[in-house]
């Protein structure tokens, strides 16, 4: 398939997975901030979200420009000044979907288009203030429905594999980042914080089944990193990523034909043959940091291998960075 189309399918599902994870994180944090009302200004409980999404600088700038953005929940959910807000991610997902309209089903398009229209409407702003539960439920529901439609309404061909790559690389990244919020203060996290993290990963019930001996920092980390069966654990997602890359290239499991496969296999082996003791002795934050560097490299290598083809393109005179002009040229008259 066309490299550009594969790339759009990848980003389409990646943006949606990203938006869903943010929605869960914000929703959980918001609820917890209600519980500890009065304990602090509320600022400190929101900090880890910014930390987990690498948005601290953007937040400072946006908050000083517009007081609406001072509310971290708003900044992450609906702000147009945050390039990474749920609203902006859904808009980007829709842009990518437009490019691949012929690859996705009508149902997928309709779902995506309606959440996009909702998020840019006054209704969403109003829900955020008056009925935030409704807003976040809607976003999470949308993502779940969309992923269900992706699994059940389109061909499971190469394009579908690329959308799975986007989904699982993003999910690995998000689970690890959410876990990393526990290392933010440097203190031993409280029980309520551990529960929040489990809930933000939709994993409370699943965790209970695997760890009857209780909620401890080590257990939570061990579950989110190593669980064989929980579909948001780092191990589970890396395994899917590895399988999908091999499904695309047709290369046997355990072997590799490109850098993306090699790095993914190596990251998976690292998880498969590691243990929570080893993670603890290296430090959780350090281990997660390493994982994220690996994930970035994997994403980069998927791009190099399948999208930005590794051959020399001669005589490229394309000027850089004038998308408006480009858009204008696209609008040339048709007869």
């Amino acid at each position: 398939m066309l490299s550009r189309v594969a790339d759009s399918l990848y980003w389409l599902s990646r943006y949606i997975e990203h938006a869903e994870n943010l929605a869960r994180l914000v929703e959980v944090t918001r609820r917890d901030s209600l519980a500890i009302r009065g304990a602090s200004s509320g600022e400190s409980i929101w900090r880890p979200i910014l930390f987990a999404s690498d948005l601290e600088d953007e937040y400072e700038n946006a908050a000083s420009d517009d007081e609406k953005n001072a509310d971290v929940g708003y900044f992450v959910t609906l702000s147009v000044d945050n390039p990474d807000s749920i609203r902006r991610c859904i808009a980007l997902a829709r842009e990518n979907a437009r490019v691949v309209r012929d690859q996705i089903s009508e149902e997928m398009w309709v779902e995506l288009n309606s959440i996009h229209l909702y998020l840019k409407s006054q209704a969403a702003e109003q829900d955020y203030l008056q009925d935030p539960d409704r807003l976040f439920r809607k976003i999470i529901r949308f993502s779940v429905v969309f992923q269900g439609l992706t699994a059940s309404t389109i061909l499971h061909d190469e394009g579908w594999q690329f959308s799975r790559l986007g989904q699982f690389i993003e999910r690995t990244d998000k689970t690890s980042r959410i876990l990393d919020t526990l290392t933010f203060t440097g203190d031993e996290p409280e029980r309520s914080e551990l529960l929040s993290v489990l809930r933000a990963c939709s994993s409370f019930a699943a965790f209970r089944k695997e760890y009857v001996d209780g909620v401890s920092f080590r257990n939570v980390a061990s579950f989110l990193l190593f669980s064989q069966a929980f579909p948001r654990s780092v191990r589970f997602c890396l395994r899917r990523l590895d399988e999908t890359l091999h499904a695309i290239s047709g290369v046997a499991p355990g072997a590799f034909s490109n850098e993306a496969e090699r790095l993914t296999g190596s990251a998976l082996a690292q998880i498969n043959f590691s243990s929570v003791d080893e993670v603890w002795s290296r430090g959780l934050h350090k281990s997660i940091d390493d994982l994220q560097v690996r994930l970035n490299n994997i994403g980069q290598q998927i791009y190099e291998t399948y999208v930005h083809l590794p051959f020399e393109i001669r005589n490229v005179t394309r000027t850089e960075g004038i998308p408006l002009d480009w858009r204008h040229q696209q609008q040339q008259q048709q007869q």
Binding site: R4, R98, V99, D102, Q331, Q334
Partner: peptide
């Protein structure tokens, strides 16, 4: 096709789909 922002993009993509061939932008070709 010139791309997504063209007034007739719908038609370009429709015809490609009906013919079972790829719809490409300039940057897809070399």
């Amino acid at each position: 096709t010139p791309g997504l922002y063209n007034s007739a993009y719908f038609e370009h993509s429709f015809l490609a789909r009906q013919m079972g061939i790829e719809i490409v932008e300039g940057r897809d070709l070399v």
